[in-house]
Design a protein around this nucleic acid. Structure first.
Length: 676
RNA sequence: UGGCCUAUGGUGUAACUGGCAACACGUCGGUUUUUGGUACCGAAGAGUCUAGGUUCGAGCCCUAGUGGGCCAACCA
């Protein structure tokens, strides 16, 4: 039998390679290094799963290290929250570390660097230094303090440490190369003076090391073999290595930094700073608001650790920019909850249903399965009576044949109960239905085994007995932002895209078994979705969050009330030539869903008017296989001819091009050609 | 007028390191079903950004171009 090859992501490949060369398994050690200045979000989950996942895979220790070098922004609250989130995800760290524990070692190394002429005290303003630093395209120049003597540097640095200077008066810089192509190598700052109390070291220090001079050295102290971070740190790697060169003993393990692409989710933002803004402005109730992409928000929303880890696993690890569809996250929470969530009945938008032939005052307790996916979940009993609530949308007076729910004269099953036939709808003076009458078939009781109970009715409704129902607050969530990429507009602030309807609080009516539900318990409200008990819940007032709705294929086919979506046109690229834009759009044109294709077509038209005749002609010999490009060519020709009021007969080759499209088997092409 | 990273179905990731592009989500059909859920079956959808080159053979290697991202905080 041939070995089954399980594909490894590129980081795993690096580790495997190292293992095959000069690393032994015992050398492996990883770390997750959050700055305690905010709550962890779904993006961090990727970083956590990568490093802790590698630890699990290779049986290697993983440190949880707080990168706490900036006392201005960091707080104990965040440290606690981060620990809770990481362990909630199901990971165990080897050691909890703090960069601030290494301040003394860092300081001692710094003295060595100064003595070796590798660092100096600069005494200019930050503006002056920024100016000397140059730009990515222009080299920097040396500042006036660059060549201070070792003695002077030592003295000044001692006095910085002793608190003799105000913040900003002096900084310590590494002496590398002001002309370096990598801006980070142009004498980067190592220390600044900050008269701030630190959450762990208190007032012991008034000089604080910068990220670059802390991170790699912390990795080295902890003997981290692979220091994994996101792509924006790629340019830092050179500096990471330079700093390591200065302190590396040559005898022990030398850490290496490798970078992966961070996770992006559509319809959300991943910036801690911006998430903090949402919290501070009161747009959400806190870091753990169920609409937040934070781990604590997802937890409160009802997401499980398994669902998040599976999601991260599905997303994969690579080095290109990516935007993950939130639908994938939703798939994974449904997948997990489907297996474990007990099914219950709850009516969220009630209308009264009266069973006219059911005896008044009678009540029955009927058996109900707790989870069809899990036999061991057992059964419970639900009360049935003459007056029930059903969902308002489950009744329609005049319904088409595709409507399987209650309608006058048609039969439908009440879940776990009887088959009923729809009757009269009672309305108020405004024509709103206040009550629906129906009759039931006493022989059709679920599970009774009678012929009638086995009848094959198409629809099954959930319901709740009015006298037994318990009201509860139900919080329905929609996406927090109405835009796919709220953070991606140069001219608009992400706050403009906050969805005003992201939270809807309603009163739902629950079957009485829910009375004893406790905070965090998860349920499937049958036919409605997955819900959990929010922490705001009390014994006298239950509060539920909708984690996610069920997949709803009826929603796709049912006649929609009316859609007045503000048709958002995709951002057009300013710099690219019209032709290259059209080419790019065209490539995928034939495969786009209708709505998106129509938008794309109008985009192509807009660009096509800017084309030259020669460019348009370029489309005429597109290979037959490339339907999308031909389509784009067709549309471009159309828009071009129209804009320049030209007959296509006057454009060489155009008629032939159109004719070929008419004869093509592709409908889209035929349709496009018909316009001429 | 720089450097680095990157480019594979609608989305994300693969392709055992050069051997005729796979998996998941999504989409569309069907079967089962006391959840229009789940499960199961099936289909459509890319010929791998472009142009050259190396090779018997390139999504993988090389060169150039193009698109996208990152780099000028006393943030991390």
């Amino acid at each position: 039998m041939t070995e089954e090859h399980k594909p490894l992501n590129f980081l795993e490949q690096i580790v495997e390679q190292d293992l095959a060369q000069d690393y032994s398994r015992e050398d492996l050690r990883f770390r997750f290094p959050p700055e305690p200045n905010g709550y962890l979000h779904i993006g961090h989950c990727k970083a956590i799963c990568i490093s802790f996942g590698l630890g699990e895979k290779y049986g290697a220790p993983v440190n949880l290290r707080f990168d706490d070098t900036n006392p201005a922004k960091e707080e104990q609250e965040y440290v606690d929250a981060i620990k809770e989130d990481v362990s909630w995800l199901g990971y165990e760290w080897d050691k909890v570390c703090f960069s601030s524990d290494y301040f003394q070692q860092l300081y001692d190394w710094t003295i060595q660097l100064i003595k070796n002429g590798k660092a100096y005290v600069d005494s200019q303003s930050s503006e002056a230094m920024a100016e000397q630093k140059g730009t990515p395209t222009e080299p920097g120049v040396a500042g006036p303090y660059r060549d201070r003597s070792v003695e002077e540097n030592l003295d000044l640095f001692e006095r910085m440490k002793a608190g003799e200077f105000e913040a900003g008066e002096h900084v310590l810089r590494a002496k590398i190369d002001m002309q370096h192509v990598n801006m980070l190598m142009r004498d980067p700052l190592m220390y600044r003076v900050l008269h701030k109390s630190h959450h762990r070291t208190g007032d012991n220090w008034c000089i604080y090391p910068m990220y670059d001079w802390t991170h790699g050295e912390s990795d080295y102290i902890e003997q981290i073999s692979h220091s994994l971070c996101s792509l924006e740190f790629k340019p830092h790697r050179e500096l990471y290595d330079w700093f390591l060169d200065q302190v590396y003993s040559g005898e022990d393990l030398r850490p290496k930094q490798r970078e992966f692409a961070r996770l992006n989710l559509n319809y959300t933002i991943m910036s801690k700073r911006k998430l903090l803004t949402l919290v501070e402005k009161g747009v959400v109730s806190g870091w753990d608001d169920p609409r937040m992409p934070t781990i604590s928000g997802l937890r409160r929303r009802g997401y499980t650790p398994a669902s998040i880890r599976n999601f991260i696993d599905a997303v994969g690890v690579a080095k290109r920019e990516n935007v993950i569809d939130v639908a994938l996250l939703e798939f994974h929470i449904r997948e997990d909850l489907n297996k474990i969530a007990p099914r219950v009945m709850a009516v969220l938008d009630p209308v009264k249903l009266v069973i006219t032939n059911y005896p008044e005052g009678k009540e029955e307790w009927l058996d109900a399965e707790n989870n069809p996916e899990d036999e061991s979940a057992g059964e419970r009993q639900v009360p049935f009576s003459r007056e029930l609530y059903i969902e308002r949308e489950d009744f329609k007076e005049n319904a088409g044949s595709k409507y399987f729910r209650l309608t006058t004269g048609k039969e439908v099953r009440l879940k776990n109960a009887y088959i009923i036939e729809g009757g009269e709808a009672i309305k108020d003076e405004n024509g709103n239905i206040t009550e629906i009458h129906c009759t039931y078939d006493p022989d059709s009781k679920s599970g009774s085994g009678t012929e009638a109970s086995k009848s094959n009715v198409k629809g099954t409704l959930h319901w709740v007995s009015i006298p037994h129902a318990i009201p509860a607050e139900v919080r329905l969530y929609d996406r927090l932002f109405s835009d796919e990429n709220p953070d991606g507009h140069k001219d608009k602030d992400f706050m403009e895209f906050v969805n005003p309807n992201s939270l809807q609080k309603i009163t739902g009516y629950l079957e009485p078994s829910l009375k004893t539900a406790g905070v965090g318990d998860v349920f499937q409200f049958q036919r409605k979705g997955y819900f959990n008990v929010d922490k705001d819940s009390t014994p006298t007032k239950l509060v539920f969050n909708r984690t996610v709705g069920l997949r709803d294929s009826w929603a796709k086919i049912k006649p929609k009330p009316q859609q007045n979506k503000p048709q958002q046109k995709p951002q057009q690229q300013q710099q690219a030539s019209p032709l290259s834009v059209i080419n790019k759009l065209g490539k995928k044109l034939a495969n786009l869903p209708d709505e998106k294709r129509i938008n794309t077509l109008s985009d192509i038209h807009n660009h096509a008017v800017k084309l030259t005749e020669e460019e348009v002609k370029g489309f005429f010999n597109t290979s037959a296989k490339k339907i999308g490009t031909r389509l784009a060519g067709m549309e471009s020709l159309y828009a071009f001819a129209k804009a320049n009021s030209k007959e296509i007969s006057s454009i060489e080759g155009a008629e032939e091009f159109v004719q070929k499209a008419r004869e093509d088997s592709n409908e889209l092409l035929q349709e496009a050609a018909r316009k001429f």
